[in-house]
């Protein structure tokens, strides 16, 4: 009797393992399809004097066309965020940033798993310090003077009589 009972137990145990495995397999597979957090393809601290920057990121497994979400925050804790991009492109050009620090983070998911977002990437900090207005206005003034001098020169001379090359010899 004992061997028979122990045989049944073993069979029950095997069935339990198969059942559990089949239940947990999709979970494991889904876990496998949650990518590692993207990482920036450049320094995580950038500076800009003109308020724009090219952001690029990568995920280790590049065999999948991951979907990305790029968020911008005014505060390092991302309490107040703007969604800058959601889609398959792994780069984004941001412009129109004002003086101060802007924070960016990105995450990825499998295209077939809307809720399978990875963890957020490391925070990217962009320090924007525009040229001073006095410096910019000075250069603009120089440009205006040079342009006006050139334009006035050509307008003044526009009807200059052309020297007749042959006859002047």
């Amino acid at each position: 009797m004992r061997p028979i009972r122990s045989g049944r137990s073993a069979m029950h145990l095997a069935w339990c393992i198969v059942l559990l495995g089949s239940l947990l397999a999709p979970v494991a597979a889904a876990r496998a399809e949650v990518p590692t957090p993207p990482r920036w393809d450049h320094d995580a601290r950038m500076s800009s004097k003109d308020g724009y920057a090219q952001l690029e990121w990568i995920v280790e497994d590049d065999t999948v066309h991951w979907v990305y979400q790029l968020e911008e925050g005014r505060l390092p804790g991302f309490e107040d965020t703007i969604l800058r991009h959601e889609g398959p492109q792994h780069s984004s050009f941001v412009s129109g940033l004002e003086n101060g620090t802007s924070y960016f983070r990105v995450r990825a998911r499998h295209p077939d798993r809307p809720d399978g977002w990875s963890e957020w990437s490391q925070t990217l900090e962009i320090e924007v310090q525009h040229y001073s207005r006095s410096f910019a206005l000075t250069l603009m003034g120089i440009g205006a003077v040079v342009f006006l001098a050139t334009a006035v020169f050509l307008i003044v001379h526009r009807n200059d009589p052309t020297p007749h090359a042959r006859s002047s010899r």
């Binding site: 003109d50 040229y131 206005l137 440009g143």
Partner: peptide, 18 residues
């Protein structure tokens, strides 16, 4: 979202004009 792009005195932009 991109307020600097409307700034009349955007430094890099006013340098770029001339």
């Amino acid at each position: 979202n991109r307020p600097a792009l409307l700034d009349v005195l955007f430094p890099a932009a006013i340098m770029a004009i001339f």
